[in-house]
């Protein structure tokens, strides 16, 4: 510092943020994901405001199916946080049950999504049909990819837990997997009303 009499700083003080590296890293990654989905929402708003006519979501899309999907994803969010709770309580069986449920619900979400896409393709609605379907397929598709990524990480967690149950970083890693999974759920919480109900 160029201040004249530099006050002697305590040299023992270890200047860290007190947040474990992994958690800070995951939150930073989620910040960039927020910007990614914010761009998609901005694109949706710009295209919708400038479009001469825009079909309302519930006219064209299958709302009951999407509601089911929302419930599936929320439940998987809950089972994910319960898996973290079981990991903290060192209840191994409980952890496997919960992480297994989360992975299963993730797959259920994808199956329902595939069924929905199938119905759309069957009726001849493709991304190139019109701007509404382009936005719909791109946003839900990119979200679906993130769900697949989340499932992959959860599967890795389940396999990793077998030998590393006592690993000092295990509980932290379950928490970070949970953070990402909850984020994917929050994106869908905004995507669902945004596309289907407005």
């Amino acid at each position: 510092m160029t201040t004249p009499a530099a006050a002697p700083y305590p040299s023992e003080h270890v200047p860290t943020t007190g947040i474990p590296n992994g958690k800070l890293g995951v939150w930073l990654f989620l910040a960039s994901e927020v910007m990614l989905f914010a761009t998609l929402f901005t694109t949706y708003i710009v295209l919708r405001m400038a479009a001469p006519s825009w079909p309302a979501g519930w006219e064209v899309l299958n709302v009951p199916l999407a509601t089911l999907n929302t419930v599936v994803l929320i439940t998987s969010s809950v089972t994910m946080v319960l898996a973290y709770a079981k990991a903290c309580e060192r209840d191994r069986a409980g952890f496997y049950r919960m992480i297994g449920l989360t992975i299963a619900l993730g797959f259920a979400f994808l199956v329902v999504k595939a069924f929905e896409y199938g119905a759309k393709f069957h009726h001849g609605h493709f991304p190139s049909t019109d701007i509404f379907y382009a936005v719909y397929f791109t946003m839900t598709g990119l979200h679906g990819l993130h769900v697949i990524g989340g499932i992959g990480f959860n599967v890795y967690l389940a396999l990793w837990a077998r030998e590393h149950w006592e690993h000092p970083l295990f509980i932290g890693r379950v928490e970070y997997g949970g953070l990402y999974w909850h984020f994917v759920d929050i994106v869908w919480i905004f995507l669902f009303p945004g596309l289907y109900l407005l």
Binding site: E12, V14, T16, T17, I19, N21, L24, G25
Partner: peptide, 15 residues
């Protein structure tokens, strides 16, 4: 970028 930020904030030497 994630790596740089976490390293700069969390892994500085004492003092």
């Amino acid at each position: 970028a994630v790596n740089f930020i976490v390293t700069t904030l969390n892994m500085r030497a004492a003092g």
